[in-house]
Amino acid sequence: MLTKSLRSLLTLLVLVMGLGLAPTTMAVDEQNSKQQGTAKMSDADLWRAVKAGESGYSTDQGLEGGNLINVAGNQGKEIKNEYLTPAMGFTVLGVFAVFLVFFLVNGPSKLSHGYSGKMVERWSKSDVKLHWVLAISCLLLIVTGLNIMLGKHVLQPYVGDGLWASLIGASKFIHDWSGPVFFVSWVLCVVKWMPLQTFKLYDLKWFLVVGGYINFGPFKGKHPDSGFANAGEKMWFWTLTIFGLFICISGAMLVLPGLDLPREASMAALLIHATSAIIIIAFTIVHIWMATALSEGGMECMKSGYCDENWAIQHHNLWYDEIKENGSIRYKE
């Protein structure tokens, strides 16, 4: 009887304790669920902030050390890859193809009266040297820049990893060291030649008759007035002056680590650099075509500094008349 009573009492105590602990257990479980929900919500908010480019805490004391993801950098990379890289490729192929077709259909601009045999000084020896320093450095920048921008699409799939590493490494080295040479020669050319590059009213006619280079139709044989520099040369000069300035400033921002620029500024410099390069590449191709294949006798000017007298009369008549009148004309001995 006593044993039965003790068992009943023990059972009652267990029931009472169980009922007392149940609310506590439920409260703990509910609290744990809330904490887990809060933790999950905090993780989601954290990564959302990281993807949005918000800064956090980092022991790295460098510029933007607290940024795991730079939004502007990613957006700039997308613009470069989706728009500027294809535009550069289309510019090279498109402009070259257009002038090739024009040359095959139209042919070069011949001298109407042939070569006179008398050579007139057009450029001094220092001008010729300065031109070639600028031209060679510019061409090196263009070729290496094209490889840096387009090489991974055009060359890398067809060459070995070792050769590609050498090519891209050499391109980067040549590009970086050609830049200062281009900058110095660019400054000298701009300062020295700017007085000769002001636009005149007669330059408008040069554009209307395409400089007299058309060999068929109503434009055939139309040689517009031109001073020392024709309208096309002036356009090339001012394009090189303006976008060359953008190239130089943005290039310096990209290759000088001591500037420690924010990622946004570096990406803006890269986009400006690439855009300016595309424009300069297009005009460089035009300039080379016009000065060589499309103009009979034109290349001699930048080889020796002298041009044939009939070439001067046909392509730069106002300049020729001026030096003839004031007695400053100089012939090659």
Rank of each mutant, 00 (worst) to 15 (best):
K77S: 01
S137F: 03
Y115E: 11
S124P: 00
I79C: 06
G145L: 01
K80S: 10
K34T: 04
L130Q: 04
K77Q: 12
Q156N: 12
L146P: 00
G20W: 08
L111T: 00
L146W: 12
L46P: 07
F96Y: 09
A39L: 15
L111Q: 04
M149C: 09
M88H: 13
S137V: 01
M41K: 15
Q31R: 13
Q31F: 03
N32W: 00
G107M: 07
S33A: 15
F103S: 04
G20P: 01
E82V: 09
E64K: 09
K125V: 15
M41L: 14
D43S: 13
L146C: 12
K51R: 13
L68R: 06
V154K: 07
V128E: 02
V50M: 05
V133L: 13
Y115C: 08
G151L: 03
K34M: 10
T25W: 15
L93C: 05
I136R: 00
K40D: 13
L93G: 08
S58Q: 03
D60K: 12
L111H: 00
S116Y: 04
M88A: 14
Y115F: 14
C138Y: 10
D29S: 07
S112M: 14
S42W: 14
L84F: 04
Y115H: 07
G73W: 05
A22K: 13
P86I: 00
F102K: 00
G107F: 03
L100M: 11
V95T: 02
V98C: 00
V92E: 02
A49G: 12
V133G: 14
W123Y: 15
L150A: 07
N147F: 10
S42R: 15
P108S: 07
L21A: 10
F90M: 11
S55A: 15
G114H: 03
Q36H: 09
S58R: 02
T144R: 01
S112R: 15
I136W: 06
L63W: 06
L141W: 05
F103N: 02
L84Y: 02
V143K: 01
L155S: 06
K125A: 13
P108A: 02
M41P: 04
N67P: 02
S55H: 06
N81K: 11
I136F: 09
T38C: 07
F90S: 08
N81D: 11
G73D: 01
V101K: 01
D43I: 14
G37A: 14
I69R: 10
I142Q: 10
E54Y: 05
M26A: 14
G76V: 03
V71F: 06
V154I: 14
K80H: 11
E78V: 09
S109A: 09
K77W: 01
S109H: 04
V71G: 05
L63Y: 12
S33R: 08
T59V: 04
T144P: 00
G65D: 03
S55I: 13
R48V: 12
L155P: 07
L21E: 09
A44V: 13
Y57K: 02
L84T: 03
G53T: 06
S126G: 06
W47F: 15
W132C: 07
V154E: 05
E121R: 12
M17A: 14
S126L: 11
L104S: 03
S33Y: 08
